[in-house]
């Protein structure tokens, strides 16, 4: 079982700290964490400072969450992106999204 994602709330925004290993087994709990954040907060910040490995299942979940937040008129942003995360997004042709989230 993957360890739980930590969610902090600061000034009406939820800060979700991503886990170091975002492989397929982490995708379910990431989805749960994101669903609960998105349902309660309009501004969601993901802290990717410790991410060492990412996977397609987790990236899909992140994308779905980002679209949902934007659809609801909220803000989806990302901070402390590690080179690993960045490279993963680039290899999958998703750099534009990452750039946008980082600028949010």
């Amino acid at each position: 079982m993957t360890e739980a994602f930590e969610i902090k709330v600061e000034n009406d925004k939820a800060i979700l700290a991503l886990l170091p290993i975002l492989d397929m087994s982490a995708a379910d709990s990431l989805l749960d964490a994101l669903r609960s954040c998105v349902s309660s907060y309009s501004h969601l910040v993901l802290d990717a400072s410790v991410v060492e490995r990412i996977s397609t299942p987790c990236i899909q979940v992140l994308l779905a969450a980002a679209f949902k937040v934007e659809k609801n008129g909220g803000r989806f942003s990302m901070k402390n992106v590690t080179p690993t995360f960045e490279r993963g997004m680039r290899d999958l042709g998703l750099s534009d999204y990452l750039r946008k989230w980082s600028e949010n």
């Binding site: 397929m24 998105v38 987790c58 979940v61 949902k68």
Partner: peptide, 11 residues
Amino acid sequence: RLDDLDQINPD
């Protein structure tokens, strides 16, 4: 093809 967050199945 990406589903909505409420419907998405990670695997």
